[in-house]
Design a protein around this nucleic acid. Structure first.
Lengths: 347, 347
DNA sequence: TTGAAAGCGCTAACAG
DNA sequence: CTGTTAGCGCTTTCAA
């Protein structure tokens, strides 16, 4: 690989002139010098060595992204959007890790990011506790946490970007109630996260407004230890029998995400229950495959593009300006109606 | 951040002793020295600066991964497996980019990888031509190309790892023929890739063995410009009407991947055709969601874990030893039967 | 406007 | 076995 010295030699100028060309400090350069440097650069196909630059400047154009699992299309899509935004807006590249929502993994990744000189991280957060994130901030990382809106009172040093999960739970439930359902269930895997709690809270709020507390409930799956696509769908599939065994059986079900809903619909079919004739189902995430299930899955869709963009912008800005006040951005979800919801049969 | 000098000072030894501890050269160290260095390291929470190390040694523990789109669960899953293998086997981190099968993107990423000092890349290849990959190799990258098995005669400097796509096309077709289908179609998006051509070839081979050339055909979709999940499924959905309009209509359909099959099944349903009663469908990829469609999608599954592992191992080894002879590894696919295939109705 | 030179943090000779 | 030191390639004062 050619170095800045080779370029300088070929152009017959000093290395600092080359450096000035590289950093666009054209004001400090003669037109002729500029031209010759440009020529030398393209002739040698020269690219500055990032490691050297980083060693000098202390930063590198990379963004860390921690997701539970890219096998879940929700996060695969998020990674896609974030990568695009980082690249287009700032020319940053993406350093990706799958955490399986495990703190060990997350902590190890933070160490690595730091040692790689990465200063910006977007984290799809693990369980309730975020002390390890605050710790990372203290060590100099700019951290944006996704899907975990917080109380402003928490006085966190981490930025938070999230869909309004309470609202998501609320409108999903409202949709079922508007269709005449009175016996409702909310399905959630074992393992609490803030986003799940908020969705549950939205569900409960709408249920109690409608006076349906007595006939509605939250059903927690027997743990999904990992967070890929297959485990969640498997869990949904398994939970179908639980639903069938309930007396009285709910007619309207909201699930915490689409994969769970997709598994659930398959499971319901398996145990002889028809969607939407016997049971209506509403998912959350707005996965694009939800449009292609049979029946099509009604789902609460999250504005991924806008959130990805906001996160990238925020985390890079903060990495350049650590003293920004922490923010908490909330994005509104949207119900996408398809065929998995109908008026309940009289019973 | 603490530096190696801080550690040396605190431990009361020289920097080279610290460096020796870091690189595990314990033979050159007194036990006491070792102990004190260890203590100083953990006391300062010291991590070596990768940029400095890289500048000195010329390499960095990162692996590049180029996929068409992580929004396609197939590649999301591949990314997951590769990340895990890279981390576990070699302690490497993953630099990820989505290429949309666009050469511009790929070429730009190669530039960046080089300038970041990354020496190993796994590429889910773009279109037929791989000259840009050879070019990257010439510039010092170790490149493994996925899903594009080649003629050994091609004398490429790139390693190739791929499922046996010919075989995949063959067994999918065989499965339909074994169920009694005689009018077959193979669905493929516009835009040729080697893997698609191979799958088509497998289809045609089995078709001609059965003497069904006259009643079978390959149907090319009107281009899917990008390669995410939604576009492919949309395309499959749209192609359902094409199928329905055919006279005579095929009773058995193989698709080039599962997303296309999932879209197709939804589209067939939409136009009033039942799977598998009217039409049987076989996908390819072995996505885990294929188990949860309605009906469950019969699919040719690829041994992702083994391939991910092989690719990581190969590309890292090659980056350490550039003069290895290029290889071409082929993995055998496997048909997973579900409910989307049945005996055709008499007609 | 351009050039010389220090130094970012680390590794690996080499000398002691 | 331990310490000293010369760079890796770049940016950025500072002097010319």
């Amino acid at each position: 690989m050619a170095t800045i010295h080779d370029v300088a030699a070929l152009a017959g100028v000093s290395v600092s002139s080359v450096s000035n060309v590289l950093s666009g400090r054209t004001d400090k350069l003669g037109a002729e010098t500029y031209r010759r440097v440009e020529a030398a650069i393209s002739q040698l196909n020269y690219r500055p060595n990032r490691a050297a630059r980083q060693l000098k400047t202390g930063h590198t154009p990379m963004l860390g992204l921690l997701v539970p699992s890219t096998a879940n299309p929700m996060y695969g899509q998020l990674a896609l959007k974030i990568e695009a935004a980082a690249q287009e807006r700032y020319g940053y590249r993406l350093l990706l890790a799958n955490t399986h929502r495990d703190k060990q993994h997350e902590a190890r990744m933070f160490e690595d990011l730091l040692s790689f000189g990465v200063q910006s991280v977007i984290v799809v957060s693990s369980m309730d506790d975020e002390r390890h994130l605050e710790n990372a901030v203290a060590r100099g990382l700019a951290v944006v946490s996704y899907d975990r809106s917080i109380d402003l009172a928490e006085h966190s040093q981490v930025d938070h970007v999230s869909p309004d999960n309470f609202q998501a739970g609320y409108i999903a439930t409202d949709h079922l109630i508007a269709h005449g359902h009175t016996r409702l269930a909310f399905l959630v895997p074992g393992g609490k996260t803030v986003s799940r709690s908020n969705k549950v809270a939205g569900f409960l709020k709408r249920v109690s407004e409608a006076g349906l507390q007595g006939s509605s409930e939250v059903i927690e799956g027997q743990v999904a230890e990992t967070f890929g696509d297959s485990e969640l769908a498997d869990l949904g599939f398994a939970m179908a029998s639980q639903i069938k065994a309930m007396r009285p059986m709910p007619t309207g079900i909201v699930t915490v995400n689409d994969l769970l809903a997709i598994g659930l619909m398959a499971g319901l079919h398996q145990v002889g229950l028809h969607v939407p004739q016997d049971v209506s189902v509403v998912g959350m995430d707005g996965l694009s495959i939800a449009a292609f299930t049979n029946p099509g899955l009604t789902s609460v869709s999250m504005p991924l593009d806008a959130m990805a963009d906001a996160m990238v912008q925020r985390v890079v800005e903060r990495s350049q300006q650590l003293e920004l006040p922490p923010i908490n951005m909330i994005f509104q979800p949207d119900l996408v109606g398809r065929q998995s919801v109908a008026t309940p049969a009289n019973s």
